[in-house]
Design a protein around this nucleic acid. Structure first.
Lengths: 154, 154
DNA sequence: CGGCATCCTGTATGATACTG
DNA sequence: CAGTATCATACAGGATGCCG
């Protein structure tokens, strides 16, 4: 397949892309509200069960089930740790796979910021220079890639 | 709120962010498999009902319901058009809001490409220079922003 | 503190058939 | 071509309570 988005080349044929399409795979893996909200809290610094549950606003049952699923998928790691003189606890830490979902989550935020009146916008900025941050498509030559310049090949 | 991701500053307090969090708003608006798959097909060039249904693999009923919802949300526009000598048809076109979701959809693809074995990777490239394209966080000064350099303020 | 079990509701989606 | 109608299934998620 070879498609230029919003460009001259459109997809040909009407076969469904099927279950191996990476977009579909990702949606089926982490496309639930609970997964996204728990990832949000992981980015915001949560590592313990009770923090995940309280900050996400999900019930404990939902939190428990989704955290377990995210661990099984390799998005989070469950690690026992013990502070000196304290009892044993567990922490959930982002794996490289979980960190790689960051653009997804903040691209959702960016979209609501600009296109959903119901949202209370958040601001993203760069700790190095304080400049505002956006999630965008960019090529390895450093060009910002707009939709009509993006070519998809499979 | 002021949070530096994976950095020193973590979120304080355990209040749930609530329903106005832009991430939550976006998930509730377009966080279904059918919405994402139909957006995928819109980016790939679909404009007509039957194309959306056949290429997404969704049933006609699901396609009809989700297209209607996306139109009501302002993500797609339903426009009547008539080619000379042909009968009246309808086309679904992406609005600015729908185009703004592109980074979300391709960030999902990018994640599966790299972290989900079940996915058949797709390649993104820039029509201008053929260089590979990624979805990433970048500040207005042109710096790529890694997770530990991203500050969130609300 | 960090969960799991149970029950219940709403909704997303599929399958199938039918209509203008 | 562009849907609608009906039926059935699966799962997400809330509410509540229990447990080590």
């Amino acid at each position: 397949m070879h498609v230029q988005l919003a460009g001259r080349l459109a997809r040909r044929g009407n076969e469904p892309l099927g279950e191996h399409c990476p977009i579909d795979v990702a949606v089926q893996a982490v496309g639930t509200r609970s997964a996204i909200l728990l990832l949000r809290e992981a980015y915001y610094g949560a590592t313990r069960f009770d923090d995940f549950a309280a900050r996400s606003g999900l019930t404990e049952a939902t939190t428990a089930g989704r955290l377990k699923a995210l661990v099984e998928q390799g998005v989070l790691e469950k690690l026992p740790y013990q502070e000196p003189g304290q009892r044993k606890r567990y922490e959930y830490k982002l794996t490289a796979s979980g960190e790689a979902l960051m653009p997804v989550v903040f691209a959702l935020a960016q979209w609501s910021n600009e296109h959903q009146a119901a949202a209370a916008p958040i601001k993203l900025s760069h700790s190095g220079c304080d400049a505002p941050v956006t999630i965008k498509a960019e090529c390895s030559e450093g060009h910002a890639v707009e939709m009509d310049q993006l070519i998809v090949t499979s």
